[in-house]
């Protein structure tokens, strides 16, 4: 029997990467074009939404065209078009959504709307098929969430941040100590040269809670810098970076393991931009080995925003016939699950 070949075109424009990809049967990446705007936004010290939207509209058609070329697939062979509906920057999301709807209209191919976080989780599926049930720790500039999945397309939220996302905390602290944008990788690098010798708080919240909070930690760093300035003490930046990072990672790792224990699953997934953090990767791996938990971490190139992960997540919505119609709108605050457990 010849295996069916399902080709999904993915489109992702939720922040500052214009991306299009072709994925076969939900698992095999045929192409994954990412046009990054990092250099543009660096000069502003962060992503400027209007600048991002303007870049997306310039790049979108070229990027889609490249994705098909690189995959050696014609538009006629595509079975479904999957696009990030949200969350993200509304003006940026609208470019992807408008392009996807136009493509669906022009070709008659089904349109699939994908949640950005679902995409990050499915980045792992492109490496090794997801094994259910599982818990996913999603950490990025916009998200810090623990998600439970019993099967494809089934998401339950176990916990989330009550204020800043982990990646946001990294960026803010990086700015405080004068590191350039984007701050996450800079802190990671600097921390590797220091040791966590400064005493910074860990926000555990209520006992057994799976929620996160990072705004207090950021305030503690501000206070520490302020006091040092008053007393004319020199701050050892690598040590401060290491202390801050350790404070974030300890909470992330402890709560992720707690979520695995509370749900009784064997598989833990790491997803989102912050999964590129080298200390997080090594420490989580060590803990999971000790605890006998199977850890799945996407390769670095699939940690950041990309359309292949959207195409992969979209494939399983396509299999379930969950199509969007031509009135689909971008939703900057889209929820992954309607209610938490």
């Amino acid at each position: 029997m010849k295996k069916r070949r399902d080709l999904v075109l993915g489109i992702e424009t939720s922040c500052d990467e214009t991306s299009a990809a072709v994925v076969e049967n939900g698992t095999k990446v045929l192409s994954n074009i990412i046009s990054s705007q990092m250099d543009v936004h660096r000069q502003f010290g962060g992503v400027v939404p209007e600048v991002a939207s303007r870049r997306h509209v310039e790049r979108i058609t070229v990027v889609i065209d490249q994705a098909l070329r690189e995959a050696h697939v014609s538009l006629e062979e595509i079975n479904a078009i999957a696009v990030t509906q949200g969350p993200g920057l509304v003006g940026a999301l609208l470019i992807g959504v408008s392009a996807a709807k136009a493509l669906s209209f022009a070709t008659g191919v089904p349109l699939i709307s994908v949640h950005h976080i679902a995409g990050h989780i499915y980045a792992n599926h492109l490496v090794k098929p997801l094994e259910f049930p599982l818990v996913a720790l999603v950490v990025s500039g916009g998200h810090t969430e623990l998600i439970y999945m019993e099967g494809h397309n089934q998401f339950q939220r176990l916990g989330r941040t009550r204020d800043d996302a982990a990646g946001e905390a990294f960026d803010k602290v990086a700015r405080l100590i004068g590191l350039p944008y984007p701050g996450g990788p800079q802190i990671d690098r600097l921390a590797a040269q220091g040791s966590p010798s400064y005493d910074l708080p860990r926000a555990w919240l209520e006992p057994e809670s799976l929620d996160f909070s990072f705004s207090g930690l950021k305030s503690a760093v501000i206070q520490l810098l302020h006091k040092a300035k008053q007393k004319n003490e020199k701050i050892v930046l690598p040590d401060l970076a290491a202390s801050f990072q350790q404070s974030v990672l300890e909470v992330l790792i402890t709560k992720a393991i707690r979520a695995v224990r509370q749900t009784g699953v064997n598989h833990l997934l790491l997803a989102g931009g912050v999964s590129a953090n080298s200390a997080l990767r090594t420490q989580l791996l060590m803990r999971c080995e000790q605890e006998g938990i199977c850890l799945h971490i996407p390769p670095l190139e699939l940690c950041t925003d990309n359309a292949a992960m959207i195409a992969s997540a979209g494939t399983y919505l396509y299999y379930e016939g969950k199509y969007a119609d031509l009135s689909l709108n971008a939703d900057p605050g889209l929820a992954l699950v309607s209610s938490s457990t």
Partner: peptide
């Protein structure tokens, strides 16, 4: 502007 331009140029490219 971007909704119209993105929609039109995507249809033009696809067709």
């Amino acid at each position: 502007i971007r909704i119209g331009v993105t929609t039109a140029k995507t249809i033009a490219w696809a067709r």
